[in-house]
Nucleic acid binder design. Structure first.
Lengths: 124, 124
DNA sequence: ATAGATGCAAAGAGTTTGCATAGGT
DNA sequence: ACCTATGCAAACTCTTTGCATCTAT
């Protein structure tokens, strides 16, 4: 059974409080503010546990490194700006996407990513 | 200006003849059949050149390592089987996907991936 | 002849793992 | 007391780079 440690509590809190998906390094650096000795290996181990328990979701966006977010964030997809490499949330979802699979395939989930330029980069 | 070498011709041919996206290692091993001395570094360097020239496309699917395919393959998306980790082509594309972006965002391209179980894995 | 390409090995980035120690139960 | 979690460093995977050599032009 998993223990409740200071490190995990802080890692969990960092993810839950964030309003955007974070990389393992983002999480480690944010958590180090409160727990300077925290090692990156502990962050990876905690993330693996949280994802397994279902409280944290892995966000994999082609063109960006792996990010993690709390599952309480609603189902959404992302826009990746090719210039500034920032991830933006998209609201809503396209219906009928799962129907793209040929018959015989069982679809559990889907991922959509839009690529382009964000308003700020377009202005520059 | 880039030279035309045996290595690049073979790497290019391997990608063009394949009916599915390949990883750099897939490509290296296939090319070694005709050119045993070929090094993995040359494959990576060739891929970078081809992608820059626009003859090869990088296929990034969350949950799978980077794959490459020839641009002559039509625009399509993928189905990734969670069990056997194999990539399947999807035919067609959902209209109106680019409209998911908020106003002010310029959308250049998009990526869609479906996840689930393929017929073979469902049968097992 | 010359500039670019190659193969090897070493270097990097990101992630995982082994092990002795610290810490939760 | 016991068993798990931690921190560090080493190991691992994938990709890139430095360098001497080779090759296409």
């Amino acid at each position: 059974m998993a223990y409740t440690t200071q490190q995990k509590l802080i890692v969990s809190a960092v993810i839950e409080k964030s309003n955007r998906p974070l990389t393992p390094l983002d999480i480690c650096e944010a958590a180090k503010v409160e727990f300077p000795l925290l090692g990156i290996a502990t962050v990876y181990r905690s993330l693996k546990q949280f994802v397994g328990e279902g409280s944290v979701r892995l966000v994999e966006v082609p063109g960006a490194p792996p990010h993690y977010e709390h599952v309480s964030r609603p189902h959404h997809h992302f826009f990746l700006c090719k210039q500034c490499k920032q991830l933006f949330d998209l609201v809503g979802c396209v219906r009928g996407i799962d129907a793209m699979a040929p018959s015989g395939f069982q679809v559990d989930s889907h991922e959509i990513v839009l690529y382009g330029n964000c308003p700020d980069c377009l202005a520059a």
